[in-house]
Simulated scan of single mutants.
Amino acid sequence: MDDTTYIALSRIDVLTRALDLTVNNLANANTDGFKTSRQLFSDFLVHQKDVHGLTGGKDEAYTQDQATYQDFLQGELRQTGNPTDLAINGEGYFSVRTTQGVRLTRSGQFHIRSDGTLTDGSGNPLLDTNGRNIVIPPQDQILSVASDGTISTQNGATATVGLVTVDNLNTLQQEGNYLLRPTTPTHNVARKEIRQAMLESSNVNSVSEATKMVEIQRDYDLNFQLIQTESTRRQNAIDKITTEPSA
């Protein structure tokens, strides 16, 4: 296999990953709290030797997939009318307790279990400012959630929703479509702003992602055609050599 084919294959490998990310973004355009995933890739040069095995040959550019990161731009906040729906305006993440440990999320669609525990859609308890499960007394009814996260019922304040963040958002590891695993210590946000009866929509721009998917597919097809053309050229050369009469 020659250098042209290797270069095209390196590009196809990156494009395959980019297509997977774009398809996943589009699939989660309506997932509350979902953040768009982006691909970080670059070209790297390989310095070739000349025909005598010495340095000074040409440089060849290959494409490599360096990392995947999330676009943390806030999604649109929309009214739902459900008192247990919460949206974060600004920085911060809700903390929920999963079977794998504490995870962070911007998805604020919560529910009250029969025992009064406030949980997300997967049954993970929402945590307060002290890292404890938030439990609403079964006989109480939620009246309001203040912007600072204070939950009040007809009997007064019962708990305060905790909002945390990390120093470097790029250290958060995505788990599923709405949970994030912190790999560095978390700390409370300096200023909380929680909106009751609202949810944060996905920040996916469907039109932009659909356009990107078409561009990726076109680039993929061009590189695949290049590989096929190069393969045909090499095979024709081999056939010509093997069919020519020896001197």
Rank of each mutant, 00 (worst) to 15 (best):
D2Q: 14
D2P: 07
A8F: 02
S10H: 05
R11C: 09
I12G: 06
L19H: 15
D20E: 12
D20T: 03
D20Y: 09
D20G: 04
T22P: 03
N24V: 07
L26M: 09
L26Y: 03
L26P: 01
A29P: 09
A29E: 11
T31S: 10
S37G: 09
Q39A: 15
S42C: 10
F44T: 02
L45I: 13
L45Q: 11
V46Q: 13
H47C: 06
D50C: 02
V51G: 12
K58F: 13
D59G: 13
T68R: 08
D71R: 04
Q74T: 09
Q74I: 08
L77N: 00
L77F: 11
R78Y: 15
R78D: 13
N82P: 02
L86R: 01
I88G: 00
F94T: 02
S95C: 10
S95Y: 06
R97V: 11
R97W: 08
Q100A: 13
Q100Y: 12
G101W: 00
T105K: 04
S107G: 15
D115M: 04
T117S: 03
G121H: 02
G121T: 11
S122F: 14
G123E: 00
G123T: 00
N124W: 04
N124T: 03
P125I: 02
P125T: 03
P125F: 07
L127F: 05
L127H: 00
R132L: 08
N133R: 12
D140T: 01
I142W: 05
L143G: 15
I151Y: 01
S152C: 12
Q154N: 14
Q154G: 09
A157V: 01
T158K: 12
T158L: 14
A159Y: 03
V161R: 01
L163E: 01
V166P: 04
N168W: 04
N168M: 07
N170I: 11
L172C: 08
Q173F: 10
L179P: 02
P182G: 06
P185G: 05
T186S: 15
R191S: 12
E193F: 11
E193L: 06
E193H: 12
I194F: 11
Q196H: 00
M198P: 02
L199F: 02
S201N: 14
S202A: 08
N203I: 07
N203R: 05
V204K: 00
V204M: 03
S206R: 13
S208P: 03
S208Y: 14
T211V: 12
K212Q: 09
E215S: 05
E215N: 10
D219N: 12
Y220K: 04
D221R: 13
L222E: 14
N223V: 02
F224K: 14
Q225P: 02
E230M: 15
R233E: 05
A237I: 04
D239L: 10
I241C: 06
T242Q: 10
S246N: 09
S246H: 13
